[in-house]
Structures are given as C-alpha cells and as structure tokens.
C-alpha cells in the first residue's frame, strides 16, 4: 500500500482529492454555464467574476457585518444573483436574437469591469477567510487524511449539481425551461412569461456560481482574479462536455478534475495543459462535445 508504480500512495490519493475538489468547482460552474447557455443562448463570460463575487461577498459579510459562513452560503448567492438579474434586465436582454458573439463580448466586458473595480477597492493580493468551526479537522480514512472541509465541498457540489439536473429534467419548471430553449415563441403563446423565465434562469445560474464562490473562499485565496483564472479551464470543460448539457457538465467537470489530479502525479509538467489537450482532441472527433446534441 506504500507505493504504486514507484509513487507513494499518499501522494496519489492526495492529488486525486485535490483533483476531485477542483472537479467540484468545474462541475458547479459549468452546470451554471450550461443552464444559462441552454435558455439564453449566451456564453456567460461573467461567470468567473460572479463566482469571485460570491467569495468576495462572503468575505464582506464577515468583515463588515460579522455574518459567518453558513449565512453567507445562503445570502451571498442571493445578493450576487440580484446583481446578475440587474445585468440581465439592463444589458443582456437587449441582445436577444443577435449572434452569440455579442453576449460573449458583453459578459466579458462586465467581468473585466467587476474585476477591475474590486482590484481598485481591494489592492491586496488576497483576503483571508477561514474554514467554519464545524468543518475544521479531518478524517483518517486509513489510506489518506481527508480534511472535513474538503469532504464538505465535494458533497455540497454534488448535491447542487444533482439538484439542478433534477430540476431541469424532472420538474414542470424544468419542462418550461427546456421548452423555452427549443421554441420560446410557442411557449409564450401558451401564456408563459418567457422573458421573466429567462431572467430568473440567469439569476439561478449566477447564484450557482456565487455558491461555488462561497465554498471556495476558505480554500482558495479570495482575490479579484480568482474567477478569471478558473473560468478559462471551466470553459474548456464546457466545450468537452457539450454546450448546454447539464449531465455532460457534471460528469466532465468531476472527471476532468480527476484527470488533472492524475496528471499532477504522473506527469506534473503536463498537468496544466491536459484539459486543453483533451479539449482539442474532443473538438476534432466530436465537435458538439461528449454529451452535446449535434447541431
């Protein structure tokens, strides 16, 4: 049990755990992107900034108001979602019917503005946010040590991802969303308020990003750039999984995190590019993505 192919088992499991944690964030963020893309047909490049805002709002709640982690987990997504809803109503909604590129550029601009503002307000490189009392410590699993907080992140992420999938695939609300994606005009002709559905969906996707941001606050550093670094990888995940597929986003998110973890053990030099290599291969073989419907 001490070594596998000349590498200490501890190191392997440690990296796999890290991979699973990264995968949790990839999955949550790409699920949010998939939900938004599915209904609004825009690639929400502000997703990384909204994730960062989730972490930042948690920090602000604690720092200025003394509101702790558990409340932040509820409040930060709501606050950031309200911001997202304003962005959708005031900006994005005017782009409906235009080429994808416009939504992409707009949200990219929004992301740069949000990040720039926060960099001005908080020039320090990173702000501390500690693990909540209840989740400090860890479990000895025999083959490895699992910090409680990391276990919690994996469970919380899986729960959110599966809950989202259930909502979209198994509920009446989800049927509206799928129908609105396919033929919004017809759904409107049934008396459904499609624009409001679109706005709330954007808010929901943004809330998912912010929720991920709160989860990330205690393990990654809270800084204005934390989302920009992550979102590039997440977009690669979305391309591999297939744009707009929820289940694709979940499966690819977690598995690419794991693959990255493996790469760190066996070929560390390649670990930062492995996802992009896979993306290139998938694009060549199955341009719609592994779970994507062919267009």
């Amino acid at each position: 049990m001490a070594e596998l192919i000349g590498i200490p088992a501890q190191a392997i499991f440690g990296q796999l755990l890290l991979g699973l944690i990264n995968g949790s964030f990839y999955a949550m963020l790409s699920v949010g992107l998939a939900v938004i893309f599915g209904l609004l047909n825009i690639t929400n490049f502000a997703h990384g900034a909204q994730y960062m805002l989730g972490a930042f709002v948690s920090w602000m709640l604690l720092h200025y108001l003394g509101i702790g982690y558990w409340w932040a987990l509820l409040l930060a997504p709501i606050i950031v979602a309200v911001l997202g809803i304003l962005i959708e109503r005031l900006l994005i909604s005017h782009l409906s019917g235009l080429d994808h590129l416009y939504g992409f550029l707009l949200t990219f601009g929004v992301a740069l503005i949000i990040q720039g503002l926060l960099r001005n307000l908080y020039p320090v490189s990173s702000l501390p946010y500690s693990i909540p009392q209840a989740l400090t410590g860890g479990q000895n699993l025999g083959f490895m040590f699992l910090p409680n907080y990391r276990g919690w992140v994996i469970i919380a992420s899986l729960t959110m991802c599966i809950a989202t999938w259930v909502i979209i695939e198994k509920t009446n609300l989800g049927a509206y969303l799928r129908a609105a994606n396919e033929n919004p005009t017809m759904l409107g002709a049934f008396g459904v308020d499609v624009p409001r559905l679109v706005t709330l969906t954007y808010g929901f996707g943004v809330a998912l990003a912010a929720f991920a941001g709160v989860l990330a606050a205690p393990i990654y550093s809270v800084s204005p750039n934390m989302g920009a670094d992550l979102i590039v990888v997440v977009f690669a995940v979305v391309v591999i999984g297939g744009m707009g597929s929820i289940i694709g986003a979940i499966v690819t998110g977690f598995s690419l995190g794991l693959i990255e973890g493996f790469a760190k053990v066996f070929y560390p030099q390649g670990s930062s590019v492995v996802i992009f290599v896979i993306m290139a291969i998938v694009l060549l073989i199955k341009p719609a993505g592994l779970f994507g419907r062919t267009v």
Binding site: N172, A175, R178, A179, E182, M186, G188, A189, F190, G191
Partner: peptide
C-alpha cells in the same frame, strides 16, 4: 402574446411545434 393567451385564446400552429426535448406527457402538460 402571453396576455392574449391568458385571455383564453390557444394556438395549434401549422408546424405543430411539439417539443423534442419533452416527453409526450410533458408536452401534454406543458
């Protein structure tokens, strides 16, 4: 459109507009 629909007019369009991502049951209950 949604106000007109809510006032009690329903359309069955020429192209039928059945939703492919919904089951028959979901289409019916939509």
């Amino acid at each position: 459109t949604r106000v007109i629909a809510r006032s009690g007019i329903a359309l069955c369009p020429e192209e039928r507009a059945i939703f492919s991502s919904l089951s028959v049951q979901e289409n019916l209950m939509l």
